[in-house]
Amino acid sequence: MSEALLRIEGVSKKYGPNTVLNDVSFEIGEGEVVGLLGDNGAGKSTLVKIMSGVVDSTAGDFYWDGQKIDKMNRNVTERLGVETIFQDSALVPQMTITRNIFMGREVTNRFGFMKMKEMDAVAADVLDSVVTIEGIKSPKQLVSSLSGGQAQAVAIARAVHFKRSLLILDEPTSALAVRATEALLGYLTQLKGEGVSSVLVTHNLHHAFQVCDRHIVMNHGKKIMDARREDTSVEELTAAVVEGAVGLARFRAGTF
C-alpha cells in the first residue's frame, strides 16, 4: 500500500487534568471511508477537531502523504483540503443558505464584491444534487427558518461541495430522516470512487457498517479497535462500543 493520506501518531489531548485522548494512532488511506465510533464522551469530536486543525493536540505527530506536518492548524488543513462538518453546528442562523454555503469562500470579482447570482444558482444546485431534502424553498432563505434536519443538510451540502481530499463528518445523520440519510451514505460511497477519503462519526453502527471500509472504536480517549470491514461484524462493533475493551475481549472469546 502506498502512503496513507493522513497518518496520526501518538495523539493525546488534555483539558486541564483530564486526559480526553490518550496516545491515539491510525491512518486514513486515499479513497477510504473510515468509521469513527464510540460511546458518548469517548473523544470522537475532540479527535475530529484536532484533525481539522481547530483544536491543538497536547502531543502527537501528523503526516500527510507521508510528509510530516509541523503544526496542525486551520490554515494548514484548509490548504491540504480537509473539510469538516462539526457536530455543534457550524452555520450562522441569521444568514441565508447561500451565504452560509459560501461563508469564507465567497465567489467574488477581483475587488472582493460577491457575485450573488452565481452563488445563489450554485447553492440551489448543490442543495438538490447532494442531499435532497424536503421543504427548502430557496437558497435565499435564512438558515434560522430551517428545521434542524434541513440545517444539517445545508452543512453537509457545504462540506461536500467544497470537498477536496478529506471529508470529516461528525454525526451528520443525527437529525436526518431516512431518505436524506440514505442519500448521504450513498454519496460517501460515490466520493470514494472519486478518490476522496472520509471520516464518518456516527452512533448508528448499521450506517457505519454499510459504508465504511474500516472502523475505529474509541473508548475513554483510547483506540480499542481498528478493523477492516471484512474482519469484523456489527455485533463485534456493538460489543466494543457498548462495553469497551472488556466487551471486545469477551466477544472475541465468544462469551459476550
Binding site: V54, R74, E78, V92, P93, M103, E106
Partner: peptide
C-alpha cells in the same frame, strides 16, 4: 459578509477559517 458571520456565530466563522 464576514462581519455578519462573526457576529452571528463566531464559532462557525472560526471553524470555516475566518
Amino acid at each position: 459578509n464576514h462581519i455578519f458571520a462573526v457576529g452571528g456565530n463566531p464559532a462557525a466563522a472560526e471553524a470555516i477559517s475566518i
